[in-house]
């Protein structure tokens, strides 16, 4: 098909993707939330990687540096940031396992996909809580 022929065939559909519509009217289904959170958590972990590597570097440098990092990790803004990153890791982990099963055509019907979405949310929050309790 030539370019001109394609243009006449293509319909002009109305666009309905302004910001208020995206926020208030178009409801993202739960598996969609798992998906966008998978992307956000992945991006967050990549951005935070330099900070985490720095802390690993310092913690293995010497006894004194280790104590400093331990103290640093106890400060509440640092603690809060680490907690967010632990959640991001857990979410990325569980949602990722879900995607591996979806890739194998397992759990692709709507009911199962919704159920596994809830499972991802619940397990990532539970694991975050468990790790936070263990670490601090």
């Amino acid at each position: 098909m030539s370019e001109a022929a394609v243009k006449t065939v293509r319909k002009h559909r109305p666009k309905y993707l302004n910001l208020p519509a995206l926020i208030f009217e178009i409801r993202l289904p739960l598996p969609g939330w798992i998906s966008i959170l998978h992307r956000i958590s992945g991006a967050l972990l990549f951005v935070a990687l330099v900070w985490l590597l720095w802390m690993l570097d310092r913690s293995l440098a010497s006894e004194a540096a280790f104590s400093k990092i331990k103290h640093y990790a106890g400060l509440w803004p640092v603690k809060l940031s680490l907690l967010v990153l632990v959640w991001a890791y857990c979410h990325h982990f569980f949602a990722g396992i879900r995607y591996l099963f979806l890739d194998l055509d397992k759990g692709i019907d709507l009911a199962t996909a919704r159920l596994t979405s809830w499972l991802v949310l619940a397990s990532s929050l539970a694991t975050t809580a468990f790790l936070a309790w263990k670490i601090w």
Partner: peptide, 15 residues
Amino acid sequence: TIAAYVGWTIQILWR
């Protein structure tokens, strides 16, 4: 950036 991170990791692990 990623290449630098891998290099840094080697440096951290085998210091």
